[in-house]
Every structure is written in structure tokens, then in C-alpha cells.
Design a protein around this nucleic acid. Structure first.
Length: 515
RNA sequence: GGUCCAUUCGUCUAUCGGUUAGGACGCCAGAUUUUCAUUCUGGAAAGAGGGGUUCGAUUCCCCUAUGGACUACCA
């Protein structure tokens, strides 16, 4: 019997169970670009039967904003982006908050130090600023590090003394110069960068005993067995550093995919958190009140967007299914998503198209569900009606709206009789004989037993025909009387909901007011 | 300034060397409608520029231009 080989075969990344992470830092509300990154991670994970991890990258204690973490979680839950593990969700790779992983990072920092892949530096921020002011394009790297105060230029004793005396220090990665570092990007292909243009990035700061993003990120992704790093393009320039870090640890790097940025709809630059109210539309999923300033930023949820519409809209900003399909729900997106179909260039955020998506999703939402969403708005306007009536009203006006709140603009006349009449419509539609016609119409309607749309319409049209009256003239004046302006759904659908009494009352009001 | 990434209608995009360069949003026109919308039909609208490679380039390569990102003891 042959001996079994004991060594574990090293699996390729592509053969491992897919694990991706969304790793925001809690420095404020999650903006829409971050949401898209989370979405793409989610779609990729679910398509491959993998796991989605939520990790909170709070290694900058100065920028921590209370409430941001809750906000991020609530936002993604609202949108239907679900995590398999992470902060609040648990899992076997925790803790998932980087501030709770101090001790883990320390060990790896020491490992790098011991292997001479990193070194300790004592230069203060002030000293560095002075250097940068003095020397153009100063960079802390192989060409300059020997002229700085660090463990490469100081003796072991001096270093120990400085530390023991309480001097703050940082640990920097020691980048070997003049080497071509290859980043294999799933979206962009091979990106080659010469290591000489990289600087000896700070990996760890003694001041708060926390690593910087770069180190924490690599350590966590490795420990959490992340297979695919899908993140914004702003990380592409530091990807070579990350590759070098994996190499320094002798770890297998995950696959990288750098997503194109979401750009401002006007002018230039990436869509930023501040663009929110400047541009007059939300850039946040949920409303956010800045805990310091009290400033309020609008959110998609509060603006009346359906989460499905936001997801669909966002999915298509930087990716497409390769055919002409535009309306896709989450399951379809999971099915169709592909990193190779992600575009390489930034996408300008087109708010108009976002509205169109919401219109589409409103149309496919049931009248019952819309009624539920509409009722709080009606309550705000101090009007009410039986659910059944509201559902009926919605069925008449929904196709004209893109947002639930617009339902009120289209249907307020059902709840409140007109108190004034649109001047333009009055001039055009209320003729010499309108009062007379309306008076006759009242008589006709008074005799109608069954006020259903079809029945009333048949009777009225019959009356018009028998007398040889002008259909348009009568109907337009009738509409003005009922609605107060020249718009609205089919007139007999309106009268059916209004009922005989209210219909007659409104006609009478109009005759009095307009004659 | 340096490095990297990108570049098809106004916007989001399809095209994986041969197409009348397709779709969507928006815009315009027409049709439908008793009104206003919706809807439907149609229309205008694009390969940044210059060199190559090739029988043939939107597609591959180079240069230029433009845009963007990064360039912190932030992520």
C-alpha cells in the first residue's frame, strides 16, 4: 500500500471557497460609491457560493465618528446586501473590528521587523514636513532612509533608549528599490509598477499602538482567508505595496479587482460625500445627521427610493450584463454579474436615470404595498380614506409617478375638493354655456343609481349623444369642476371614487365659482 | 511635479479586426387620450487627435491631448 503524502496541497485562490469582504472605515455615512463596492462584492460572493464579510477598519482613532458603524449596517440591510459574517454577524475569524485586533497586528509587525523587512523610524511629523518643504519630491525610501533617524541608522542601543524614554515611533516597510512589481487585476489586467517609486510606508504607529490601513488590511485579509479583494480604483496605486507586503510575509496574495470610480455628474472629480446637498440629490443611502455639526444630509430611502431601484441603478454604473437588459432584480444580478464586464473608466453619476429606475420599480410594486407607503403621507396631510379606496386611487395614478410621495400631487383632489380653479384651464375649458351644461349634467347624474365608472359613463355619453352636445366641451368643464385643473385620470373613474353626492357638490361649487 | 489608470452619442454603455457602430436615460417630433400624464412609434446624437500593424481598424501597438486616482504617523 503506497504511503499517503502528508503535505497539504496548496490550493490556488481560484479553487478555494470564495470569500470577499466589505471593509469600510467608520468615518461618516457610507456614500453611494461605497454602496456600489459593497454590492459588487456581494454579487460576486453570492454568484460563487461564497461568503461576504463585514470588517470595520477603524485604525484611525482620530477619525472615528460615532454612529457610522450602525449607519453602514442599517444602510446595507435596507438595500438587501447581506453579510455572512463580520461585525454584528459573528463568525470564526473575529474580531472583525480592527481596533480590537491590536495584539494580532503587533505580532506581525515584529515578524517583519525580525526579518528585516521593516524598520523603526523616529522622525517626527514635523521633521518630515520640514524635509518635504526642503527637498522637492521628498520620499522616504531607499534613497533617503539612510539619512533619517531610524533603526537602520541608529545603533540597537540608541533605538532601545529612544523607545524606553517614551519616544513615539513608527514602523516602516523596507522596500527594495528598482524592482518591477506586478499587480494582476481582474478588471485591468497586469499593472506593472517599479518599486523605486514606492515609499517606505508607515505600517504601524506607536502612538495609538495600531497599524495603518496597509498592514491591517493585508493581515486581516490573510487571516480571514479572503480570496478576492474587490475595491475602488483609489486603491490601485497602493496595490503594489500590498503585493510586496504579502511577499514579505510569504503569503499568497488574493485576487484583486479595482473598480472604476463614481464621478460627479457635473464637472470633474470623484463623487464625494460633500456633493450631497450641493448637487441637490442624495449621495447617501439613508439620511444622516452629522453628530458634530447637526447638519443633515439627505438619503435615498427618505427621498422615496425603493431599495431595489437603487440596487439596480447602482449595479449598472460600471457594469453591464453584456446584453441590453436593464431591469434586473438582485437574483438576476447575482446570476449575471461578472468582473470582466466591469468597465475600466469612471462613471458619471446620472441622477435622471436613477429616477427612471425608481419609476419602473414603482410600476411593478403592488398597489397594496404602495398604499401602505402612501398612508403616512396622507396622515401628514390630515386626510384619510379606507385602504380599499386608497388602493383604487393608486391604481389610477401610479403610472404617472416616479416616487411614492408624488402620489399625493397626482391624487390630492380625491381627498380635498378644489377650492380654486386653474386660470389657464378655466379660460380654455369653461365656455359660455358650461354652467348650463353642468346644471343639466347634475340632473342627469342625480338619476344615476349605479355610480360605477362604466355605468355612469354610459349614461352620460348617452345623454350627450341624444342632445347632440359636444363631448369634449362637457367633459373638460366637468373635469375642471372635479379636479380644479385640466389633468387627471379617466373622469368616470374619478366620479366612481368620489361618489354621487360629492360629484354633484363639486359641480355645483364650480357653477357658483366660475359663472 | 511624479506614478498609475482611463478615453464610443450630453450621460450610462454594447462591440472581444470586417456592423447601416446597437440599447437605455435625457431631449425633439408624431400617434393614442374628453384633459394632463402614461404608453407607443420615429428622430437628432458617438469611436479625442496623430502615427503605425493589417487586405481591413472603434477594436492591436506607439505618441500626443484630455480626464481621473494616488502621492499622510487617513482609509
Amino acid at each position: 500500500m503506497p504511503l499517503k503524502k502528508l503535505e497539504k496541497p496548496t490550493k490556488k485562490m481560484s479553487e478555494k471557497k470564495v470569500r470577499v469582504r466589505f471593509a469600510p472605515s467608520p468615518t461618516g455615512p457610507l456614500h453611494i460609491g461605497g454602496v456600489r463596492t459593497a454590492l459588487y462584492n456581494y454579487l460576486f460572493a453570492k454568484q460563487n457560493g461564497g461568503d461576504m464579510i463585514l470588517r470595520i477598519e477603524d485604525t484611525d482613532s482620530n477619525r472615528y465618528v460615532p454612529g457610522a458603524e450602525d449607519y453602514i449596517i442599517e444602510s446595507l440591510e435596507w438595500l438587501g446586501i447581506k453579510f455572512d459574517e463580520g461585525v454584528r454577524y459573528g463568525g470564526n475569524y473575529g474580531p472583525y473590528r480592527q481596533s480590537e485586533r491590536r495584539d494580532i497586528y503587533k505580532g506581525y509587525v515584529n515578524q517583519l521587523l525580525d526579518a528585516s523587512k521593516a524598520y523603526i523610524a523616529f522622525d517626527t511629523p514635523e521633521e518630515l514636513d520640514a524635509k518635504r518643504a526642503e527637498i522637492q519630491n521628498f520620499q522616504y525610501d531607499a534613497s533617503t532612509r539612510l539619512g533619517m533617524r531610524n533603526s537602520l541608522t541608529l545603533s540597537k542601543e540608541e533605538v532601545d533608549e529612544l523607545i524606553n524614554n517614551g519616544n513615539q515611533y513608527v514602523v516602516r516597510i523596507k522596500i527594495e528599490p528598482d524592482e518591477n512589481v506586478i499587480v494582476n487585476d481582474l478588471i485591468r489586467g497586469e499593472v506593472v509598477i517599479n518599486s523605486s517609486i514606492l515609499d517606505d510606508k508607515v505600517l504601524y504607529k506607536s502612538a495609538d499602538e495600531l497599524p495603518t490601513y496597509h498592514l491591517a488590511n493585508i493581515v486581516d485579509d490573510h487571516l480571514m482567508e479572503v480570496t478576492h479583494v474587490i475595491r475602488g480604483e483609489e486603491w490601485l496605486p497602493s496595490a503594489p505595496l500590498h503585493v510586496l507586503l504579502y511577499r514579505a510575509f510569504d503569503w499568497q496574495a488574493p485576487e484583486f479587482a479595482h473598480l472604476p470610480l463614481l464621478l460627479k455628474p457635473d464637472g470633474n472629480g470623484k463623487l464625494s460625500k460633500r456633493d450631497g446637498d450641493r448637487l441637490g440629490f442624495p449621495v447617501f443611502p439613508l439620511e444622516w445627521i452629522d453628530p458634530k455639526t447637526g447638519d443633515l444630509s439627505s438619503g435615498y430611502r427618505e427621498a422615496g427610493y425603493l431599495p431595489e431601484a437603487v440596487i439596480n441603478f447602482l449595479a449598472l454604473l460600471g457594469w453591464n450584463p453584456g446584453n441590453n437588459q436593464e431591469i434586473m432584480n438582485m437574483d438576476e444580478l447575482i446570476n449575471l454579474f461578472s468582473l470582466v464586464h466591469c468597465s475600466k473608466s469612471g462613471a458619471k453619476f446620472d441622477y435622471e436615470k436613477g429616477k427612471w429606475f425608481n419609476h419602473k420599480y414603482i410600476q411593478s410594486t403592488s398597489n397594496e404595498v404602495l398604499a401602505e407607503m402612501f398612508e403616512p403621507i396622507l396622515a401628514e396631510k390630515s386626510v384619510s380614506a379606507p385602504r380599499e379606496t386608497i388602493v383604487k386611487i393608486i391604481s389610477l395614478v401610479k403610472e404617472r409617478v416616479s416616487f411614492v410621495k408624488e402620489l399625493w400631487d397626482q391624487s390630492s383632489f380625491f381627498f380635498v375638493a378644489p377650492t380654486s380653479y386653474d386660470e389657464k384651464t378655466r379660460k380654455k375649458r369653461w365656455k359660455e354655456d358650461s354652467a348650463d351644461m353642468m346644471t343639466q349634467l347634475m340632473a342627469v347624474l342625480s338619476g344615476v343609481e349605479n355610480f360605477s365608472s362604466e355605468n355612469t359613463e354610459a349614461i352620460v355619453k348617452n345623454w350627450i349623444e341624444e342632445n347632440g352636445y359636444h363631448l369634449g366641451n362637457i367633459m373638460n368643464a366637468f373635469r375642471l369642476a372635479l379636479v380644479g385643473e385640466g389633468k387627471g385620470p379617466h373622469i368616470f373613474d374619478i366620479t366612481e371614487i368620489l361618489g354621487k353626492e360629492e360629484t354633484l357638490r363639486r359641480i355645483n361649487n364650480a357653477i357658483v365659482a366660475l359663472s
